[in-house]
Structure formats: C-alpha cells, structure tokens
Amino acid sequence: MHNLAVLFAMGADGTTDNESAGRWFTRAAELGVKDSQFNLGILSAKGVGVSQNLEESYKWFALVAKNGDKDAAQKRDEVANALRPEQLQRARAAAEAWKPKELDVESNDTSIPDGWTESPSKTASVDMKQAIRNIQLILNKNGYDAGGADGVMGAKTTAAISQFQKDNGMQPTGRVTEELVRALLAKK
C-alpha cells in the first residue's frame, strides 16, 4: 500500500496525484506502516493531499519517533513548537491512544482480478487505474512494451509485467504484486 502511495506521489510521467497519494499514505499509516506515517506527518504539516492539520502531523511523527527515528523526533518537536498548549496536549493524547487498524487480507490482495483484463469498465477504481497507468509508464520507459499508458490491464501490459518479472528473478505471473511495485519503483 505504501508503494502504491509512492507511485501516486512520484508519478512515472512526471505528474503528481497528491490526493490519491494522501489517501494511500493514510490507509497504510493507519495500518502501522512507519514510512507512510512519516510521509503523512509531512503531508499533514504542509496540507498536501490531505487537510493541513498540525495535531495530526505531530501524532504521525510521534508514532514513528517512538521507534527511535531521530528525523521523526526532530520533526515532531518542530511541530510541537508551532502548537498551542491545548493543541499539543490533544496531539500527545492522540498519539498515546493510537492503535493500528487490522489488515483485511482479502481487500488488500494486490492481485488483479481476471475480469479486469477484459473491459476497462470493470476496473474497480480510478485509483487503481492511475496505479496501472504509472506501472505501464515505468515498464515502457525500461524497454518493456506495455502498450499505451491507459491504466487498463490488457494483454500487452500483462505480458510486459511477466517479462519484467522473469528478467528480475520473480515468478512471471503477469500480476501486480508488492514485489513488482517495489522493483518498478527501483527502476523509475
């Protein structure tokens, strides 16, 4: 999930989709992904992709800082200095009370249902379409013919993913997986 957020934040075609990135970073942060919590602390402080909220920013940085992250501790302290005493008290309480959401394994499976490859109208969401488009752009940029960057999992995209997976020591399934997204982000 964090890697999907990164795909939106650093669009393969040079554009950014801050709102989608904010949604994905939020989902991952709520599950306890530390990198996403740190990024959400930054986004919340700046109001990029999410509403500007310094109390939320403090909470996310405080959660990451609990694990010994010095950068997060520094940013937490910077945000604390910008908060009024009552805001800081609320932010500290929110960080103390925070518990990660439970992961729903079924809804977080990164496999693309077979039905999606037949018709673009069956794509589950605009977010996934944008992620597929970014995957296609990265594949094409690296010499794998994924066809046009239309956000649809067609035969060319599936074949390009399979070839990329094979060339990079992965099981050539032609499906979008966390391992695939990580490898593609490294090739960006």
Rank of each mutant, 00 (worst) to 15 (best):
Q52N: 05
L139I: 04
K129Q: 15
T158R: 11
M128N: 08
R27L: 11
R27F: 08
E86N: 10
K66N: 14
T158V: 10
D77G: 04
G147C: 01
G22M: 03
N3K: 10
P85S: 12
G154L: 01
E102F: 07
K187H: 12
L184V: 01
A93K: 13
A160N: 09
G147F: 00
R133D: 01
F164L: 02
G148C: 05
E30P: 02
A72Q: 07
A5F: 02
A28E: 04
L31T: 05
L88W: 03
S121A: 14
E55K: 07
R27S: 12
K188M: 14
T158L: 08
E96W: 02
S36P: 03
S51W: 02
D127R: 04
K99A: 15
Q52T: 10
F25S: 00
M10S: 12
N3A: 12
T16V: 13
S125C: 06
K59S: 10
I112V: 15
A131Y: 02
A29R: 01
R175N: 15
A62Y: 07
M1G: 11
K101R: 13
R76L: 05
L63W: 05
D35W: 05
R76S: 01
A91I: 03
V33M: 09
A9P: 02
S20C: 09
N18I: 08
G47P: 00
E179P: 02
K34D: 15
V33S: 09
S44W: 00
L63V: 13
I42E: 11
V176K: 00
E118N: 10
N142K: 10
G14S: 06
A65H: 08
N3M: 11
G68K: 11
D127K: 07
D150R: 09
D104H: 04
S20E: 14
V126A: 14
K99N: 07
S119F: 12
N81H: 11
T15S: 10
G174N: 06
G151K: 01
R90T: 12
G174K: 05
A186E: 11
K59I: 09
V6T: 12
T157L: 00
G47S: 06
G174W: 04
D77P: 01
L83T: 05
S20H: 08
S162K: 13
W60T: 00
V152P: 01
D109G: 02
D109Y: 03
D17R: 08
A97Y: 05
E118S: 11
I42F: 08
G154D: 12
E96R: 08
